[in-house]
Write a protein that binds this DNA or RNA. Sequence first.
DNA 1: CAGTATCCCCTCAGATACTG
DNA 2: CAGTATCTGAGGGGATACTG
Lengths: 118, 118
Amino acid sequence: MEWNKENPEQCKVVVALDAVVGKWKPLILLHLLSKGTLRYNEIKRLIPDVTQRVLTLHLRQLEEQGIVKRVVYRQVPPKVEYSLTEHGQTLKPVLEAMHAWGLSHLEHLENFKNTQSE
Amino acid sequence: MEWNKENPEQCKVVVALDAVVGKWKPLILLHLLSKGTLRYNEIKRLIPDVTQRVLTLHLRQLEEQGIVKRVVYRQVPPKVEYSLTEHGQTLKPVLEAMHAWGLSHLEHLENFKNTQSE
DNA sequence: CAGTATCCCCTCAGATACTG
DNA sequence: CAGTATCTGAGGGGATACTG
């Protein structure tokens, strides 16, 4: 926790960022958090603007990081289910903290922009 | 706080990410958090690998967001001091949460990679 | 259904040189 | 000291078409 007292260089904020950054990753994580388990096309439908290519890329990266679990049911037509691993669940409070700050930041930006133009 | 129950679309995680993402932004913020006020070249010395161009860009963006305050002393040679705004300070708990998760994530990656190769 | 395979573009960051 | 100005390259993401 005490990263900032002496040597900020060894802080691991970037590690967290690396896991969460990606145009659609936050949305993917939030949907998995609220729904539990989702099939590939369900995610695609929940996030219409993501392309298949990028959605797959994001999911693969989250899987590599041990954040998302991918279960393939060998059948025709194929069925693939995505869910958060236990470790992935631990992101929830972090995402909530970021969301809360994001909200307050938006408010601050309001009167900040105003005082700028005055 | 309740972004995930029904509509993750309106979650503001991305707002927070937008403010914090940038190759050297976390380090800049951490240094400012621990030192309080720093001159341009002091930051540059604390983060040797950042180029002047990118450091300036990052600082300008943080300033635009109302996170960093920039004070110019009109004198020769010039003196410019950077510090966090009050609002910028509110990022501290968020960064700490990310750092803490980053640490635990690194541990998890250890035995995750191991179980992968088994 | 759940993806690959290509191709393209554009932003972010680095390198280097210059300046009020 | 605290920056600009230019040029450059890498890669993250989009569009479209195809497939086991």
